[in-house]
């Protein structure tokens, strides 16, 4: 995020404050991506945001406080992107909507690997308070995924836990890749994630058929 010009610039105080707050949020997100939660300090956040330490404390009580704000902002942006992708494919079948949603998510993560990292790795590392937010975020994706999900082609039922397990599986896979230092090319996993999702609902064979039919 661009820092504002120094000195007299005729910008309103609220605008400056909001801009600073947003810079601090992306500063923290960036710092976490570089050094991880435990090594991130208020000074480092300030450096990345080009905001002084004393200004930091005008916006946040502590690193944790800023972290929670950054975490929520990250989740919100991710949810927005997925929902936008879903809206664009509104009215189409579940089998068509899944790749759009997964693609939207992975494109965002490729553009901003720091966002993927805070949402999928650092959020879990930060402790109990944030874990609830992580869980709530995943639950909201569970609802999106479950909407219009198919019944199995040959009798039997898709188990109730499938929606949740698929979301948990995708986020776990992405988190593990980020930890392995491959967070900047998550979109390479696009075909595998789509096929995994289909296979949980339709079986591996049917999943392969849909994926290769493109």
């Amino acid at each position: 995020m661009e820092r504002l010009p120094r000195g007299r610039h005729g910008l309103s105080a609220e605008f400056v404050a909001r801009n600073q707050r947003e810079r601090l949020i992306s500063g923290l997100t960036q710092a976490l991506y570089e050094v991880g939660y435990h090594e991130t300090t208020v000074s480092l956040i300030g450096q990345r945001a080009a905001v002084s330490k004393s200004d930091f404390y005008k916006h946040f009580e502590s690193k944790d406080d800023c972290f929670v704000a950054a975490y929520e902002a990250a989740i919100e942006r991710i949810r927005e992107r997925v929902l936008t992708a879903c809206e664009e494919s509104e009215g189409r079948s579940w089998e068509e909507r899944v790749p759009d949603a997964v693609g939207g998510l992975l494109d965002l993560f490729d553009e901003e690997p720091a966002l993927a990292s805070i949402a999928l790795v650092e959020g879990l590392r930060a402790g109990r308070g944030v874990y609830d937010r992580y869980q709530a975020a995943l639950e909201s994706f569970v609802v999106i995924l479950g909407r219009g999900a198919p019944r199995p082609p040959v009798g039997g039922d898709v188990p109730e836990a499938t929606d949740e397990a698929v979301i948990g599986g995708i986020t776990s896979l992405l988190g593990r890749r980020i930890l392995a230092g491959e967070g900047d090319r998550l979109s390479d996993l696009f075909p595998e994630i789509v096929e995994f999702t289909f296979s949980a609902y339709l079986g591996g064979e049917e999943a392969r058929r849909i994926v290769s039919a493109g």
């Binding site: 948990g168 599986g169 995708i170 986020t171 776990s172 595998e192």
Partner: peptide
């Protein structure tokens, strides 16, 4: 990556 996804899903549940 299917095994990673499946084990991750079970862990989450």
């Amino acid at each position: 990556t299917i095994e990673e996804s499946l084990v991750g899903g079970v862990a989450w549940i």
